[in-house]
């Protein structure tokens, strides 16, 4: 039985090699013996803690803002819906350095909002808050787009029944919509976390780079590449392992949703 033409194997092999060989090549270069010492060095721990902390906060913000955003988008009609959807999707395809510039001219000292904040003595640049804002900015679209799609395809019939039975909109949200959307929220959250963890360009442009304050894992790797490639490779390995875990979990959740 033929489900696809046999020639598809050639590009299949090339494509697979292109994606997998660099990862394997990296594994071959990682200094495995020194790994524990490298990863417990002060620089590594500072970058790991900072990245983990900021990504957790950013992911919480993504959930708080993203779920209602997706809900309103999925359940609304009108010309503005597609406009908002475009705006929400754009950061996903924006080159990170452009995202950083956009944040800089908005929240920077001379920015649209930053200038007024600065007058009140609040300055975001060079702080950990700037890192969290950059991560939230680039990660939010991932949750919103995947959740909106799921909410639309699951339809509104259960919500309509609950409404006919006299439940308030808030009660419907907590008791009906949210439980149905839970798998989509979970996989969207995982993807957002991964995107936040990998955030580089916007952070570099907007937040700066100082150990323990704004220098997250990707920034530290970029800098270490200049002098200490062993530690750079060790930290890269951490990001690869986390990425593999997140993709694995997210795929599991999606399969479970499809089967269940």
């Amino acid at each position: 039985m033929h489900r696809f033409p046999r020639w598809a194997w050639a590009p299949f092999a090339l494509g697979l090699a292109l994606l997998a060989v660099p990862l394997l090549g990296m594994m071959a270069r990682v200094p495995w013996g020194e790994l524990p010492a490298l990863l417990t060095s002060e620089r590594a721990l500072d970058a790991l803690t900072l990245s983990l902390g900021t990504c957790l906060i950013a992911t919480c913000l993504v959930l708080l803002l993203g779920v209602p955003l997706a809900l309103v988008l999925a359940r609304s009609r009108g010309w503005w819906v597609s406009v908002v959807r475009t705006l929400v999707t754009v950061p996903m395809v924006l080159p990170p350095v452009v995202a950083g510039l956009a944040l800089l001219v908005t929240f920077g000292r001379r920015g649209l909002i930053g200038a007024s904040l600065s007058a009140w003595g609040v300055e975001i640049g060079f702080t950990t808050i700037a890192v969290v804002i950059a991560q939230t900015f680039v990660a939010l679209p991932f949750l919103v787009t995947s959740l909106e799609g799921a909410l639309k395809s699951s339809g509104e019939q259960y919500e309509r029944v609950a409404s006919n039975l006299g439940a308030s909109p808030s009660r419907i949200f907590w008791k009906v919509t949210l439980p149905i959307a839970l798998p989509a929220i979970a996989s969207g959250t995982a993807l957002s976390f991964a995107r936040a963890l990998g955030e580089f360009g916007a952070t570099l442009t907007f937040a700066g780079s100082l150990q323990g304050v704004t220098r997250t894992l990707p920034l530290e790797i970029y800098l270490l590449r200049e002098t200490d490639s062993d530690l750079a490779l060790a930290l890269s390995l951490v990001l690869i392992v986390v990425a593999l875990a997140i993709v694995f979990v997210s795929t599991k959740i999606q399969n479970w949703r499809r089967d269940g």
């Binding site: 060079f126 570099l204 442009t205 700066g208 780079s209 100082l210 220098r215 970029y222 800098l223």
Partner: peptide
């Protein structure tokens, strides 16, 4: 006591 140690001189200038 810098607020940021940038990865390139152009990044410093940009700030």
């Amino acid at each position: 006591s810098p607020v940021s140690e940038e990865t390139s001189v152009t990044n410093v200038l940009g700030k």
